[in-house]
Design a binder for these strands. Structure first.
Lengths: 109, 109
DNA sequence: GTAAACAAGTTTGTGATACAGACTAAACTG
DNA sequence: CAGTTTAGTCTGTATCACAAACTTGTTTAC
């Protein structure tokens, strides 16, 4: 254990966190998609209580990150947006939860 | 359980989170203070690897929130800043950890 | 058939925030 | 006393979360 092995103590776990998922709004979205497997814009809107604009931009961010796939189609002549986690998104979500758990386990009591 | 008890499902746990502590940098600071009981600026600087400016502003935020007490004194003629969690800060930290744990427990598997 | 109302999102504007780099003030060094 | 070090603070900037305004198309009212 060389002397330059400094600062690898516990609270450091917090530094390794996926900031995309760390935002509670996005965590909520991903958590729904994680269990539901696929959901539409309106469903998420109702469940989360976000404004449309806010929801829209979080979805855009998740899409850019490659965490969700956005499928747009027309249903009964209206636009309809379906969301689902990508494989990458699912893995990132699991990884994030693992990190958090480690962070929590890091402290005694 | 009235029918208007809607949307109290699990991912909602993410909405109730203390944003002050949710920032990983501040979580790290509070985690150190939680175990160490009291630490100085330089110690935190070394442990966290933050820049002075960044550390300074997070400390300011924690102080405003009433989560840490900042004690400035002169040691060997040099300014010396000691930090310690307030009771409120300690409770908020425990509360935050509890919320996170609930959030994690919220999902199956 | 045109106008008002509605539906489903997207774009834009704003205020807050995280971070780093420049700055400051005091003390020590040669 | 000029320069350097120490210990922080202040300032500038890029990013972000959020809401309000806007867009595109459909349905309803007259």
């Amino acid at each position: 254990m060389a002397s330059n092995e400094r600062k690898q103590e516990n609270p450091q776990a917090a530094a390794a966190i996926d900031r995309i998922i760390h935002e509670p709004a996005r965590y909520m979205i991903m958590a729904y998609l994680y269990v539901v497997e696929s959901a539409d814009f309106i469903f998420l809107l109702n469940q989360t209580g976000f404004t449309r604009g806010n929801l829209s931009s979080h979805i855009a961010r998740l899409e850019e990150s490659g965490y969700v796939e956005v499928i747009k189609e027309f249903v009964a002549k209206k636009p309809h947006t379906m969301l689902q986690l990508t494989r990458k998104g699912r893995e990132a979500f699991e990884e994030y939860r693992k990190s958090l758990q480690q962070m929590l386990d890091g402290l005694p009591k």
